[in-house]
């Protein structure tokens, strides 16, 4: 089984923490992983993308070919649309609805959300709102990961939880708990949307 994920966002939003949590979980399951990241100039508020590939067989390319991604996981709504050429015919989009406006010509948010709404298999989630309810705005990325988790079939939720525990243990039990609860809230939201 193979899962190809495009992780999208804006430099500084922390898509790499999501990637790391998935990566740790994949390794726990004895899967092969390749994860191409964006470092450098774009990290200063530019569009950033990470190609994450998980498989039980050896993986060749570090880049996902166009039309082959099973999932676009974006923490910014316009950025989700930027990678549509990569999405497969049966792939899902899981995106945050909070825009990150650091450009003057950012399109009307309504138009962006309408465009997303017109596509099939989209989970649009107010990750920031949910994170705030849980009590930590900073955990919105883990809400996103939770919302994406039903579409990463090769990895069990418990492995993702294990990944989060490893990622945040150094920051204390409270941070671990908040992020775990963020993960579960995201998952619940996605499942509700699907049903």
């Amino acid at each position: 089984m193979k899962t190809d994920i495009i992780l999208a966002g804006v430099g500084g939003q922390g898509i790499l923490s999501i990637a790391t949590a998935i990566g740790v979980a994949a390794l726990k399951n004895g899967l092969h992983v390749k994860q191409a990241e964006t470092h450098g100039m774009s990290q200063r508020g530019g569009a950033v993308v990470s190609h994450m590939r998980i498989s039980d067989k050896a993986i060749f390319s570090d880049l996902i070919p166009e039309g082959k991604a099973d999932l676009i996981l974006s923490i910014e709504p316009m950025e989700a649309l930027r990678y549509l050429p990569y999405l497969s015919e049966t792939g899902y989009i899981v995106t945050n609805t909070t825009p990150f406006k650091n450009i003057n010509n950012y399109p009307e948010l309504e138009a962006v959300l309408n465009k997303l709404g017109s596509l099939k298999r989209v989970v649009a989630i107010d990750a920031d709102g949910i994170a705030e309810k849980i009590g930590s705005k900073l955990s919105s990325n883990m809400v996103m990961l939770g919302a994406a988790s039903p579409f990463i079939e090769s990895i069990e939720l418990s492995s993702l939880e294990q990944g989060i525990i490893e990622l945040f243990t150094s920051k204390g039990q409270k941070v671990v708990d908040v992020n775990l609860s963020a993960l579960r809230s995201g998952k619940e939201f996605a499942e509700k949307t699907l049903n």
Binding site: E66, G67, E79, L87, E89
Partner: peptide, 15 residues
């Protein structure tokens, strides 16, 4: 097999 094109409303986001 390419997916959909990038919608026109998507703007560049330079650093």
């Amino acid at each position: 097999q390419k997916g959909d094109d990038i919608p026109e409303l998507v703007e560049n986001r330079p650093p």
